[in-house]
Design a protein around this nucleic acid. Structure first.
Lengths: 241, 241
DNA sequence: TACTTGCTAATGTATATACAACAAATCGAG
DNA sequence: CTCGATTTGTTGTATATACATTAGCAAGTA
């Protein structure tokens, strides 16, 4: 193991064991350099990487301290529906039930930052897992940024994949809620009785503005959103991230 | 702007504009050092940080290349309910409706990795936002790792906050689904009619094993889970992460 | 062809040094 | 004692250098 990794391990162990609680001072760069008999730059690298991983905070002129645990937030990964189905070794296919150009109503126009009443792409696509419908994707797309949207074949590649290709997506915001589907959505999902649905509202951005607004509706009985989380960056012991 | 930041900006711009597509080679450390008239170590820092942010991949002996876009997954932040309410400038309070020690049924015992039938803590806590119930937290806790759980005052600090303090939580897994609440939950949430609820199933781990298993139920009409996402690490232009 | 060898270029690690920017403690004057 | 200036310690940036490790290529060899 390289020297800077040894120093990281040493500090990591102190923090994980609880020997160094929150805000406990960590030896300075020069201090560590002395303890471990390395140059300051090597000790510095250890501290810098720990800071990048969020385990310690550093303040010029003041020192390095054990970072407070971030109890308030955790990260959940949201994956592409097609990928998710495929990794379950199931079969995915999509059906385009609607592809049109419509005048954006006021709310949508505000969402997409386009002039009120201007034309936008509107598509509705149903995603199937082993021939069972698991998602209705109702999407509006800004034609200024993606003029060719209406001409794509979305049975081959999902809209999200396509959008990632043609525009460098930079951000997205999600809202997840539980709702009862309307009649039309029930029909698309093949539901005879109303049942709770997981609805994800997603807005995606590229550097030039809002690209797309999508509402993804999943039947609660056939779909759940899962994710694994690490509160801190895991140690890179075995060479893999 | 410091020199290494200028180099990062330069490369970032090339990638974002699409001028350098996936797998396009990036100038070598020495090359950039020449172009920008800096030392190799300064150019190296720029490339190294871009690699840490996932924008480029590096291979010893081979070179640096624009990383493929990760379209398949995005990250959603899940926050502590109490923090979330407080940042909305609303008032949060909690009510403990149940705190007991029970014998773990088989399924739960497997979940928590404890012997079948051994005692575990079980608590049910209702969280209020401005006196409206917004979450029922039904939690089981491994007493081997958190023996004092039953003696805490959870009107002052949420269980999750407490658990983060006493054990260094390292991981969690979440499952989110839409369900109809049972009679008891409806009563706790003050619902007269059944309505779709967002249910989060969370299991948390520390280095010694599974700490806790919680089911968080939110009424769909009063709660949605929101999150902002960046597909790539944002540029650190204005000095903030 | 198939394999080996050696060279070159690229990244990875480590060191030494210099100076800048900043925070906190120290000291001195009033 | 209080306020302000100075000092000291710590992190941030930048440079120069040395050597290690590896990928890719080219040339040579069987």
């Amino acid at each position: 193991m390289s020297k800077y990794e040894q120093i990281k391990e040493y500090i990591y162990q102190k923090i994980e064991s609880g020997e160094w609680p929150e805000n406990h001072p960590v030896s300075s760069e020069n201090g560590l350099a002395g303890q471990f008999n390395v140059s300051r730059m090597t000790a510095r690298r250890a501290l810098q990487e720990l800071a990048d991983e969020g385990l310690v905070t550093r303040a010029r002129g003041s020192g390095t301290f054990v970072a407070p645990l971030k109890s308030q937030s955790a990260l959940l990964t949201i994956r592409n529906i097609a990928d998710e189905i495929r990794t379950r070794q199931h079969q995915h296919h999509a059906k385009v039930v609607l592809m049109e150009e419509v005048s954006a109503p006021p709310t949508l126009a505000t969402f997409l930052h386009v002039p009120n009443g201007s034309k936008v792409w509107h598509s509705v696509i149903i995603h199937f897992e082993n021939d069972q419908p698991v998602q209705v994707e109702d999407r509006y797309v800004n034609p200024r940024l993606v003029p060719e949207y209406g001409q794509q074949d979305f049975t081959a590649c999902t809209p999200h994949e396509y959008l990632c290709e043609v525009t460098p997506l930079t951000e997205a915001s999600h809202q997840i809620e539980a709702v009862l589907p309307d009649q039309q959505t029930m029909q698309w999902l093949g539901l005879s009785e109303p049942e709770p649905c997981l609805q994800i509202n997603r807005r995606t951005w590229c550097s030039d503005g809002v690209v797309s607004q999508a509402t993804l509706t999943h039947p609660g009985s056939k779909y759940r959103l899962g994710g694994h989380i690490t509160f801190r960056s895991p140690r890179k012991t075995k060479g893999e991230v």
